Amino acid sequence: MIKGLIFDYGATIDSNGTHWAEVIWNQYQTAGVPISKANFRDAYVYAERALAVNPYIKPEDNFLRLMQVKIRIEFDYLLGEGILSKNDTTDSVIDTIATGCYEDARKSVEAAKATLDVLSARYPMVLVSNFYGNIQAVLDDFKLTSYFPVVIESAVVGVRKPDPAIFRLGVEALALQPEEVVVIGDSYRKDIQPAQSLGCDTIWIKGAGWDDSEAAVHHDKIITDIAQLQELL
């Protein structure tokens, strides 16, 4: 019997299953940044690794500020590699891309709230996220705090997905047994597999991923829109 829910945040609630690399790439294209997708992906990985080991993001930074910092790191990498020029990497271009990403996230979050309203009335919910130390500021800005009284953030607890230990913390926060908990996430490797290894039930919100490695993966509960959770839960 289902008694509680664990949600992933990034790419689950704020982009409805679409990997954030795809969201950012779309904004690069809209802004007319003259690079290939392969070069963009290299910059994306570089920025993710830099953010993981350097305190560039402050706890009070909202999602817009996070995106401004992230895009600046990507642009600095592309500039250093000689892929972009200084004219391509102005603050104005960074703000255009970051603002576009912020608006994409805001729209996805607003659309998700109808489902979160329904589910939070039925079940206690916990958020488990790989994030940069500012997830609370992001939730506050998007008016999501009330849905998740407990937030387990990798940068705070010192454990990152796909380590099942971070989901175990979520289960413990719910004060339930794993088999009483459903985990909802967008990544089969980082959300579904580790949660299943604990004995949790899982629902995979499957959208455009980082690559095709999970395209053929079978799972008995796949959705393509967060609103479909109301039917399953």
Rank of each mutant, 00 (worst) to 15 (best):
P194R: 02
Y123F: 15
Q228G: 05
P162E: 10
L229W: 07
S36W: 07
V138C: 08
Q136M: 11
E153N: 10
E172A: 14
R41D: 14
S213E: 11
E110F: 05
A227S: 15
L64Y: 15
T96M: 15
N62L: 05
T30M: 10
D186G: 05
A137Q: 00
Y28A: 08
F7I: 04
V182G: 02
G82H: 03
P59R: 04
G100C: 07
R168P: 02
T145R: 13
I135R: 03
V53S: 10
G133K: 01
K58A: 14
D140P: 00
R160I: 14
A31F: 04
D220L: 03
V150Q: 07
Q177C: 12
N87V: 07
A98H: 00
H19A: 14
S108E: 09
R189C: 06
G80F: 04
D95Y: 09
V183T: 13
D220A: 06
A215G: 02
G207W: 00
I35Y: 10
V183S: 09
N87W: 12
V33E: 00
W210L: 12
D163K: 10
L64I: 03
K221N: 10
I13E: 02
K143L: 11
R49H: 14
F131E: 03
N39I: 03
F63E: 11
A208N: 12
I6D: 02
L233R: 07
F40E: 07
D61H: 15
Q193C: 07
S15F: 09
K70E: 13
L174T: 02
F40P: 07
D95R: 08
R49A: 13
L176P: 06
G82K: 04
E214I: 03
D211N: 15
K86P: 04
N16Q: 00
Q68C: 13
V156L: 11
G4Y: 01
N134E: 08
G32C: 11
E110P: 00
I57L: 03
L79W: 05
A98S: 10
Q196N: 14
D8V: 06
V33Q: 02
Q228P: 03
I135G: 09
A227E: 14
S108F: 10
A215H: 08
L229V: 04
N130K: 05
Q196A: 15
L78S: 06
R65N: 11
K70Y: 14
A50S: 13
E60F: 04
F63Q: 10
L176I: 07
